[in-house]
Amino acid sequence: MIERLELNVDVLAESEAKIGRWILDHPQEVITLTVRELASRAESSQAAVIRLCRSLQIDGFNALKVLLTADLVRNENAHGREYPELDPKASFEMRLEGFSQSLQTSIQSTIYGIQLDQLQLLARWMQDASHVLLFGVAASHVVAEDLYHKLLRLGYHVTNPTDFHIALMTVALFQPTDLVFLVSFSGATDEVVEVARLAKQRGAKVVGISQFRKKSPLTEAADLMFYVSAKEPVPRIGATSSVIASMVIGDALALYLANQEPEKTYRHLKDTEAAVQTHRLV
């Protein structure tokens, strides 16, 4: 929540930005306030508080406080260090516990932000699509590959190219009923954005996974966005919370799709399991 505000406060309407800046300056205090009290403290209006929640794609002020609380817990565990997992003053057990709590917070916050109507819309697009392409670069490719594996087992016609040129050539042949699913935590990965723009030229639907930015190249190109609630330090050893939280979005989609036609899902899972069963040693 804090990072979402920091990334977007300068592009919000002034009445909303005023409240956003007050929240950033007084995060601990906000979680105890009502909408009316926050509006008064920020010298703004209750309507502006509600508009701010909508602009940040948060389902109301209570949801904002839940996400803000999770951020405060995560920041407390980090002890203000860029690399809390490398804190020389902490034991390995303490560092591991802090890492675990950070992951749990990212997962819970991401799940909290997934909206049922988004899954329903995406499920309709998936059912109508003749082809679905998933694409991401570096750590985001790991997320795309994980979702590819799940959708394949559910019987969808999906592809997950590792080569950028193959991704472009595939999308160049897409039709308006087809779907492109793109992953970029920054929302600004050049290769991902180029695939998104080509998909739009072809009339295909574009779905994205990224951190929340009101204005990012991927957000501007996408028809539907799912947002990851994870904070990665820069520089960092490697993507961790963002990758796992992004996978949770894919898991939520797969879970929703699997339960639309349980009997069909069961047959697909049994058939795909049987196909590889003979290659197990035990």
Rank of each mutant, 00 (worst) to 15 (best):
V234H: 14
Y227M: 01
V180F: 04
Q211P: 00
E191I: 01
D163T: 07
D163M: 03
Q211V: 02
S216N: 02
R202D: 11
P233E: 12
F185D: 05
E261V: 13
D178R: 00
A245Y: 11
A188K: 14
Y256A: 02
L281Y: 09
N259L: 13
E191R: 04
Q201V: 13
T265Y: 13
F212H: 14
F164V: 11
D251A: 03
Y256F: 15
L253V: 02
V234C: 13
V228N: 06
T189L: 09
G250K: 09
A274G: 02
G203Y: 02
T278G: 00
G187W: 04
V195K: 08
M225S: 04
E263P: 04
V192E: 08
P235C: 10
V192S: 09
M247R: 12
L173V: 00
A239H: 01
S229D: 14
T162G: 15
L218E: 03
L281C: 00
E191N: 05
I209H: 03
I237E: 12
K231T: 13
L182H: 05
M225V: 00
I249F: 06
G250Q: 09
K215T: 11
R197P: 00
L179Q: 01
P235R: 10
L224V: 00
A239K: 00
R202V: 08
F181S: 03
V276Y: 05
Q260P: 05
T170S: 13
A188R: 15
K205C: 02
Q175S: 11
L198D: 11
Q201W: 04
Q211R: 12
